[in-house]
Amino acid sequence: MLRIAVLVSGSGSNLQAIIDEIEKGSLNCEIKYVISDSEKAYGLERAKNHGIETIALDRKIYKGKVSDEILNLINGQVDLIVLAGYLSILNGEILRVFRNKIINIHPSLIPSFSGAGMYGIKVHEAAVKKGVKYSGCTVHFVNEEVDGGEILLQEVVPVFVEDTAETLQKRILVEEHKLLPKAIKLISDKKVKIENGKCYISK
C-alpha cells in the first residue's frame, strides 16, 4: 500500500477528493500525514474529521526551514508527497531524498501561466487577461525549478469570453479533483516511469 503525505495551505478540497477515493476503495493508499504551512488551513480540519494525523508548520514561524522540518518528520514514513494546494516552495534536501516522489497539481496547462509567483487565483487572472481559449490543470513531479518537473497528467478546460478568474477557477477545480487521485493511482499501480525529462505511462 502506498503511504502518502498530503501538503495543503488552504481549504483542502483536493485533499478531500483523495480521501473520498480512498474511502470508496478506488485508491490503494494510506494518508499518513496531512501537513500545512498555516495553522488556519481548513484542510487540517478535513484530515482530523477522517482520523488522519495533522502537522502545522506555520511558514511565519519556521520561515525558510519548513522543508527541512517536513523531511525530518516524514523521512522513512511515506512513499510519496502530494502537494494539493500547497503554497510554500519545497527546497533543499527533501528534493534530493524524495526525488521523483513528489507531485504537485497546478491550475494551468504547464508551461503556460506557471513558475515563480504563479499560484492560486493569480493563474486564472493571467489566463483570463491573456484571452486564451483553453486552460486546465497539470499534475507534475517536483524538482528544483518551480513548476518545472516532468508532466504526468493534464486536463483541458475551455475558457469563455465571459469568464472571470473566479468562474474559471471553479471549472478547473472540478477537473483537479479528478486528475490528482488519478495521478496517485497511476503511481500506486507502478505505471509511471520517468526517462529523459518525460513521464511514460504503461497500460
Rank of each mutant, 00 (worst) to 15 (best):
P181K: 02
E23L: 15
I103F: 03
I52M: 08
E150K: 00
K24L: 13
K24G: 01
I89K: 14
S188K: 03
H177Y: 08
T164E: 08
I172W: 05
A5E: 04
D79F: 03
I105L: 08
S36G: 03
D68V: 00
F113A: 07
A116G: 01
E155S: 14
I4E: 05
D37F: 02
L90G: 08
L152Y: 02
A41R: 07
V142N: 05
F98I: 01
G85E: 12
V159Q: 08
S114I: 05
L80M: 10
V97A: 01
I18G: 07
V82R: 02
I102V: 09
M1R: 11
L173I: 01
C137H: 04
A127S: 12
D20E: 15
V157Q: 05
K40E: 15
G197T: 02
A183T: 04
H177Q: 14
K63C: 05
E176K: 10
L95C: 10
R3P: 09
K122H: 15
C137P: 11
G149A: 10
A84C: 06
G51W: 08
P107A: 06
I89H: 11
D163L: 11
A183N: 04
Y62V: 14
L152A: 02
G76L: 05
K101D: 01
I55T: 04
E39R: 14
K24F: 02
R99A: 07
G197Q: 02
G115K: 08
E93W: 00
E176D: 08
S13M: 04
N28S: 14
E21D: 15
V192Q: 00
E145L: 13
N75I: 09
L44D: 10
Y119Q: 12
E23G: 00
K101F: 00
T164N: 10
S38D: 11
I70F: 12
V123C: 09
A126L: 13
S11Q: 14
P107S: 07
N143R: 06
K101P: 03
V132M: 08
V97N: 01
V156D: 07
S202L: 01
L186H: 03
L83N: 01
Q169L: 13
K60F: 15
L152V: 03
E45L: 14
D20T: 14
K48P: 09
G25T: 09
G92M: 10
P158T: 06
G149P: 13
I4A: 14
V159T: 10
N104C: 06
I18M: 03
E53V: 10
T167A: 06
N104T: 09
A41M: 11
E23N: 13
L109E: 07
S36F: 00
F141H: 05
L87K: 00
Y86F: 15
L186G: 03
G136N: 13
N28Q: 14
I19T: 10
S112L: 15
V8E: 08
S13D: 11
E144P: 05
V34Q: 03
K130F: 14
A47I: 09
K170G: 00
Y200C: 01
A47W: 06
K190V: 00
G136P: 12
D68I: 02
K170D: 13
G10V: 11
L87D: 06
E150M: 02
I19D: 07
E176A: 05
A5Y: 05
R171Q: 08
G149K: 04
F113T: 12
N91P: 01
H124P: 13
L153I: 02
V161P: 14
I22G: 07
S135A: 10
K191E: 00
Y200D: 00
I151W: 04
G197R: 00
L153M: 08
A165R: 09
I187A: 01
V8I: 15
